[in-house]
Design a protein around this nucleic acid. Sequence first.
DNA 1: ATGGTGGCGCGGCCA
Length: 263
Amino acid sequence: MQAAPAGGSVRIATWNVNSLKVRLAQVLQFAASASPDVLALQETKLTDDRFPVAEIEAAGYRAVFSGQKTYNGVALLAREELQGVTTELPGAPDPQRRWLAATVSGVRIIDVYVPNGESVGSEKYAYKLGWMERLREAIAAELARHPQLVVLGDFNVAPEARDVHDPKEWEGQVLFSEPEREALRRIVALGLHDVFRRFEQPEKEFSWWDYRMNAFKRNRGLRIDLILASDALAARCTACHIDKQPRRQERPSDHTPVIADFA
DNA sequence: ATGGTGGCGCGGCCA
């Protein structure tokens, strides 16, 4: 057994911000109001030299990040020290910045931006499924070393029918196709728990809505932003919810934050 | 309906 976690209770959140440059003020506002101890960001779309370190430090957070120009990019903001940082999904070199891991307050945090996959059968879809299999292998290795572990981020897969506004319309489509759901189930089967589903939740609760066709107003969304905790960490989970407020703001990200509390 | 909206960056790609 490892030593007991150092920090006690921890609030952990994830948010695909779709450009940190555009969304910085919203991120700082969210950090101030929700006050997460750890905030995992995806789609920062910033090279590391442009990361807003000063603004984030002024808000009381440390930051590590792995970015690139225009696309992708992940970051971890934390109140406490971030140790053992890695920026590469093991298995094959990949210029796409989609993985960021660090240990904070005794919890191993793995922030992921799973590929979108474009459409079923496309080259990007094959890349997505391959990436998810490499992710499964990487998580298995991390779990062997870190019993207190969370994998969170934009998985670009809705796990179940109840995570989709219209499962019949989405059946077989990218983000809800059976091979993607199977790849996600294989990851969860390592011994992880989708902590959102460990608590009673409202019906039709989603984390992403397309910008087009008033999808948010009509609640035509998907739950594709997930917080997956190991057995030992899930046992400490006291709450998980989706915060829709940022999606209602002017110029929002198409995703909204998911927040989990651990005792 | 191969549309539609948004970000990046200034044409076309990506989501």
